[in-house]
Nucleic acid binder design. Sequence first.
DNA 1: CCTGGCACTCACACCGCTGGAGTGCCAGTT
DNA 2: AACTGGCACTCCAGCGGTGTGAGTGCCAGG
Lengths: 339, 339
Amino acid sequence: MSEERKLAVLRAIVEDYVETREPVGSRALVERHSLGVSPATIRNDMAALEDEGYIAQPHTSAGRVPTDKGYRMFVDRLSGVKPLSPAEKRAIQTLLDGAVDLDDVVTRTTRLLAQLTRQVAVVQYPSLSRSTVRHVELVALEGGRLLVILITNTGRVEQRMVPLNGDPAESVLAALRSRLNQAVAGRRLAEVRALIADLAEQFAPADRPLVRAVIEALEDSLDIEREERIVLAGTANLARHGPDFVLSIGPVLEAIEEHVVLLKLLTEMGDGAGGVGVLIGSETAHTGLQEASVVSSGYASQGEVVARLAVLGPTRMDYANNMAAVRAVARYVSRILAS
Amino acid sequence: MSEERKLAVLRAIVEDYVETREPVGSRALVERHSLGVSPATIRNDMAALEDEGYIAQPHTSAGRVPTDKGYRMFVDRLSGVKPLSPAEKRAIQTLLDGAVDLDDVVTRTTRLLAQLTRQVAVVQYPSLSRSTVRHVELVALEGGRLLVILITNTGRVEQRMVPLNGDPAESVLAALRSRLNQAVAGRRLAEVRALIADLAEQFAPADRPLVRAVIEALEDSLDIEREERIVLAGTANLARHGPDFVLSIGPVLEAIEEHVVLLKLLTEMGDGAGGVGVLIGSETAHTGLQEASVVSSGYASQGEVVARLAVLGPTRMDYANNMAAVRAVARYVSRILAS
DNA sequence: CCTGGCACTCACACCGCTGGAGTGCCAGTT
DNA sequence: AACTGGCACTCCAGCGGTGTGAGTGCCAGG
């Protein structure tokens, strides 16, 4: 029994099953793929594959269905990289080139991915923890309030309103502004907290409440956990996967509504071969996603990976296609954010 | 045949059907509700109700099911206002009182509604067109860029970055800042465009490009259509409505993913009795929502209605409960935004 | 090591049947 | 005039039985 052919059989099973959504038998296999051997031979291979846990039968005398382990093997060793069609490449360009700011890039990317893969698309906002401070601005408003604005190198703008007692002197503000920027401009957000902690001591006692309030506002903007955001699109695609999947749609919807769950998945998964990571079924380690897979890739801003984007769909998905789409989009987004 | 009893029968049918999800027959009706007459009499009433289009049979020799028209009648004339339980009232208070800013209020409200009604919850951000300008601020950043910030009375903050050639003089900025605020502070956003249109002419020719750029940025912030935003929660609840509804889940997901559709629905529907508006099934005039209903109410900021919130679910929903929840939450949100 | 053949299994579709819930109608009662 | 009990009728839903076909495992022979 040739090891090579056995894997070819596994590949054929995965491909056929993804396409037809029905358990695939030995006869259909030799008919659709030119394997050059008889169904009986295939059956032997299948029995071996089943022993090794790559495929399973829903019931005796039915065809075979890939297991999570089978998909994993397919993704790791059997699936070639399917290049995108020119039309798809064009779609990526035309859709993303029109983006005007970071919000726009993110939402457009999400829609694009959903459309391209016909799955649920997830795009994570550039993570605050890895980005750096471009500028901090203080704006005194009428009514004794102060607007504290934090701008990151990824283009993200966080603002907080600080109530004060009485209007602060512009000279104090100017001093604080310049000290702040001197301290934190260009530094990573994760470092900022430490850098500004004892800033108050450099000011006259009378001004310290003001300084402390500003520091507090800034720290609030930095609260990374709270600000890890993701955007979704294409949830309606979940209903496009046949009645059997639609019945287990509830848990999946719950999982993706819990953004925390998705964030955890994304941040914990690395990039595999070709810069694309895949989690299959139970590998997600989440009850609602037993029948779902996630295909994801990091994207960069100014040469450094800052966040991830992904598609989510049934384990029975077209991995080659989705991996190609995710990779292409991630690269294109990185190129846009490079500037 | 008493007209009064006929309506009582309709009410009973709606209530039973909502609860059991099964067509309701004459016998079950007299058993569960003390109508004081025999099944045969009920049958006569039912025949009449069917003639008038309030109920229908899925097939001969099955029980009756309310039509959209039947639900409409139920909502308009038959459904009492079911007061919320103390536990629910407490839930509203504790969840909403912790909100720190507008974003927080909106997301908390959405989650709360979804949890309270076990339906899909929709909350619209305070509409820009109805809110007023609190303040406009200009901040010169290093690198010859200018940050234009617009703050509304609802607490919403819009910012735009404007690239310039060369650093502008602070004196010009100050003049522009004060002229701008003088012109637009306290005015409705809808008026702003007209108010600032010819501001450039009040400045020296050399400064006009700057002024025009700022005006453009402001106008961009005002682009209302683009900025009508809504937030969703509880989409997973769509899967909780029995297999028959889950199969038609796709179109519904599509519809609610198209935020434009929802916005149109919300803005076009008025408040009915008790400040709550209801759209039932085909009344939504949207293909994907034939089997869905929307229960919605406006909420106010500083005494004026600025946006709407809603829940969306199958036509076969508990209207009394959902209307009560929507009304209560809308009132509570209005109270929070009053300050 | 592959293949054709063969016996075996089992989901699924089809069929006919029946029970029961529900209806509409009508004649009788109040 | 309104209600009721009775009755005939309809028709969905569930059930057991059956056959068929796809699929399998195994084995003996090439």
